[in-house]
Amino acid sequence: MTPPENAADGLGIEPGMTVMESGHDDDVDDGVRADVVARAGRGLVADDHEGRVDAVLMWWRCGDGDLAAELEDLRGALARDAVVWVLTARARHVGHVPPSEIADAARQAGLRPSPPVDTGAWLATGCRRTDA
C-alpha cells in the first residue's frame, strides 16, 4: 500500500465539501489535514458542528474509548453519501488499532467499512452509512 501524493485523493475529498475533524491531538498528521483543507477549499469544522457534513476525519488511538459509540454519535451529522475516515497509527506504532477492530465497530454503529487507505503515518478506514 503506497500513500497517494495528496492525501485528499485517497480520501475522496472534493472541492466544496464540509469536513469535520474529531480526535485532534498533537500526534495527528498535519500534512493530511492541510491536503484536505486545500482540496475542500475551507477549514475543518469541529465535532460540535450543527449542520450535515460530507466527510469526517476521526483520529483514533488505542485506548480512546468506545469506537462504535463514537461512530454511532457521528451518524446524525452525516450527509447521505458522507464517509467517516477513522485514522489510526500504522501497525507497530503507538496507538495503532487493527483495521478488523475498526470494521467491527463500524458495523456495530450501522456503518459499512471499506479497506484501509494509506495516508503515510496513518491508515484511514472509510465508514459509510448503510443506507447511502
Rank of each mutant, 00 (worst) to 15 (best):
W60D: 11
L44P: 12
L57P: 05
A68M: 00
L67K: 00
G43S: 13
D35S: 15
V37N: 10
L74E: 04
D27A: 12
D66W: 04
L71N: 04
A91L: 10
R90C: 06
A79I: 04
D35G: 08
G41F: 11
M17S: 06
R33C: 10
R52S: 06
A46P: 08
E50F: 00
G43W: 02
D81K: 02
G95S: 05
A82G: 07
G65L: 14
G41K: 10
G51H: 02
D48S: 11
H24S: 09
A89M: 13
D26H: 07
S22V: 15
H49Y: 15
A46H: 13
D54W: 04
A40W: 10
V53G: 00
M17E: 12
V84Y: 08
R33Y: 08
L87D: 07
R39I: 03
L71E: 03
D73I: 00
A77V: 10
L67I: 01
V86C: 00
G63M: 01
T88D: 09
G76V: 03
D47Y: 02
H93N: 13
T88C: 10
S22M: 14
V36Q: 03
A79Q: 06
D27W: 04
V36T: 09
H49E: 15
V45Q: 09
V53D: 02
A38N: 07
H96E: 15
V37I: 15
D29C: 03
A68W: 01
A91E: 15
V37A: 13
V86I: 00
V37K: 15
A40D: 05
V56T: 03
G31R: 14
M17I: 04
T88R: 05
M17R: 07
R39W: 02
G63K: 06
R61L: 03
D66L: 04
L67N: 00
W60Y: 11
R52H: 09
D25N: 15
L87K: 07
M58K: 09
M20K: 01
V84L: 11
E21Q: 06
G95W: 08
D48G: 06
L87S: 11
R61Q: 09
V37P: 05
L87E: 10
W59D: 10
E21P: 01
R80I: 06
R75V: 14
D47V: 01
A38H: 02
A89N: 14
G41Y: 15
D26V: 06
G23C: 11
C62S: 13
A38L: 02
D25W: 14
A89E: 15
T88H: 07
T88N: 05
D64F: 10
D81E: 10
A46G: 14
M58S: 06
D64P: 05
D64Y: 06
H93E: 12
R90T: 09
V37H: 10
M58H: 10
D29A: 11
L57R: 09
V53P: 01
G16E: 14
D25Q: 14
A82E: 05
V28T: 12
D54S: 07
D29F: 04
V28F: 11
